[in-house]
């Protein structure tokens, strides 16, 4: 298991290659990269606040659950905090398993849980002002799938 919480950017391709390196026991790797979106062309910056200590702990707990439930060979989570520009990577998840169904499902599970159970808060700084991003009811509902 690899869990990193950092302000520095990361290269998802480099991370994914490193994650896959030297493995012979797996047949599937699934990855997801979350990116700062600016669909209306108004976003100047996304500020991501987190709870140092609890963040790492909560993510590790979620990853551990996924590894056990889907019998994953390995899993990776990188999540950034601080000031991020549109187009910048926010976070990535990668899962490795013998077969693809487990890798896809586990990645989906990790994303749903990271969204609502990892202590991060997003604030959008736009041309028109700053506001905290509200959690969506559908994000909470998504957890019921699991």
């Amino acid at each position: 298991m690899t869990v990193r919480v950092q302000s520095d950017t990361f290269d998802a391709g480099v991370e994914l290659n490193a994650f896959a390196q030297g493995r012979r026991d797996i047949g599937a790797i699934v990855s997801f990269t979350g990116v700062v979106r600016d669909t209306d062309n108004t976003l100047q910056e996304m500020l991501i606040e987190h709870y140092p200590g609890m963040t790492e702990r909560a993510i590790k707990e979620i990853v551990k659950t996924a590894i056990e439930r889907w019998n994953l060979a390995d899993a990776l989570v990188i999540h950034r905090f601080g000031a991020l520009k549109p187009g910048a990577p926010i976070m990535m998840v990668a899962t490795a398993s013998a077969h693809r169904a487990a890798a896809f499902e586990a990645a989906d599970f990790l994303m749903d849980y990271l969204k609502s159970r990892a202590p991060f808060w997003k604030k959008e700084i736009t041309k028109d002002g700053a506001h905290w991003v509200d959690a969506k009811e559908q994000d909470e509902d998504a957890l019921k799938r699991w």
Binding site: Y51, M91, L114, K115, R117, P119, F120, W121
Partner: peptide, 10 residues
């Protein structure tokens, strides 16, 4: 003890 709004990770 920590107080915060619902989390918005991911």
């Amino acid at each position: 003890i920590a107080f915060f709004p619902p989390m918005t990770g991911g």
